[in-house]
């Protein structure tokens, strides 16, 4: 870790100004990812800009019936906010499926979008990594890639975006609010994170100096038929091998509207409109779900250690849609508890 200066920005505009005034500045939210990256010398900002005083921690209703999450709202406050729990339980469950209570108490919603991949090589300076050092090569290809992507990969990077929260935000079609040197703008959630292509060093479409100020959730929250299913190497405190955010609007047995997004499988939360289209208008049956799963995984590619994710994702999609239909909303497969044969 190198030495750095720190200022607590009094307001959004001042934060942006401060960022432009320094060469290697970084915003800091809860610091749960950034500080680790700095300790490992993966990130070496020379100036940190604190955001706690920028007034961005509120969660408030929008006139159109939606909900605005301030970028500085913590993951914990978001998950347990009454409006989120009631109207966007998919989001609440996804957030609670991530990290640990201590981390969620610190982590901010803005930081969650911006967290970097957990690729082992990205974190280890002794190994080549295009994302960390463009042009050095991708060690995960041909290496240990158990946690890596099966969709939307490129020859230069097969990393995943590790967030759970973002998978729900993708499914719910949130909008990212941004403030930057050229004023404010909004970014549709699906356009926020990038695929690696030949520039894996860029995780998203934020421009230099831009600050996330909030997230807008549309009025439609799928509060009845939803499921966030997360599969991982232990029951808590592990990143998703595969996760599925499924949200349905049902009319009797018929699917009126559907959302389907996956985590742990791509460089961005993977929402598939074509798969959603295969669900809409169809009966909510296992066959329908399987067709949607096949659509999502068409073109999926394994790299050895992670090839199992293709089959796992297929099964997880079917299970999540089933759970959404049956309203057995679960973040994982904890159904086994407290019973003996």
């Amino acid at each position: 870790m190198n030495s750095f200066t720190f200022t607590q920005a009094p307001a959004v505009a001042a934060a942006v100004q401060d960022n432009l005034a320094h060469e290697d500045a970084a915003y800091i939210g809860g610091g749960t990812n950034l500080l680790d990256l700095m300790k490992e010398n993966v990130a070496r900002p020379t100036h940190l800009i604190g955001l706690k005083k920028t007034g961005l921690a509120a969660i408030e209703s929008l006139p159109d019936g939606g909900l605005r999450l301030g970028a500085l709202a913590t993951n914990a406050d978001t998950a347990w906010h009454p409006d989120v729990e009631k109207r966007y339980p998919l989001l609440s469950q996804a957030v609670l499926a991530g990290a640990s209570p201590q981390l969620r108490n610190m982590a901010t919603d803005g930081g969650n979008l911006m967290q970097r991949t957990r690729c082992y090589y990205f974190y280890d300076l002794a190994t080549p990594c295009n994302k960390r050092e463009p042009g050095s090569g991708c060690s995960a290809i041909g290496g240990y890639n158990r946690i890596h992507a099966i969709l939307g990969t490129s020859e230069s990077c097969i990393a995943t975006h590790p967030s759970d929260m973002c998978v729900a935000l993708a499914a719910l079609a949130a909008t990212v609010r941004v403030s930057g040197p050229h004023g404010e703008r909004t970014i549709a959630f699906g356009d926020f994170h990038r695929l690696p292509g030949d520039a894996p060093e860029r995780d998203n479409t934020l421009e230099p100096g831009e600050l996330i100020t909030g997230l807008d959730l549309p009025a439609k929250g799928f509060e009845k038929n939803y499921s966030y299913l997360k599969l991982r190497d232990r029951t808590s405190y592990a990143f998703a091998l595969v996760s599925v955010a499924a949200a349905l609007e049902l009319d009797g047995d018929t699917i009126k509207d559907a959302r389907l997004a996956l985590g742990g499988v791509a460089h961005k939360p993977w929402r598939d409109p074509a798969a959603e289209a295969l669900l809409i208008g169809q009966p909510a049956t296992a066959d329908t779900f399987r067709r949607a799963a096949a659509q999502v995984l068409e073109g999926a590619q394994g790299y050895g250690h992670n090839t199992f994710k293709i089959e796992l994702a297929r099964r997880a999609i079917v299970r999540a849609l089933k759970q959404a239909t049956e309203m057995t909303q679960r973040t994982d497969d904890n159904a086994f508890l407290n019973s003996n044969p």
Binding site: Y121, A126, T127, T235, S236, N334
Partner: peptide
């Protein structure tokens, strides 16, 4: 401890990736 033999190096060298059970795994 997963080793990448190309580097002769253990790659999951932290508590986030070297998995041991958490409370939720133990009944």
């Amino acid at each position: 401890s997963v080793m990448d033999h190309r580097f002769g190096r253990f790659m999951n060298h932290n508590y986030a990736e070297y998995h041991i059970p958490v409370n939720a795994d133990i009944h």
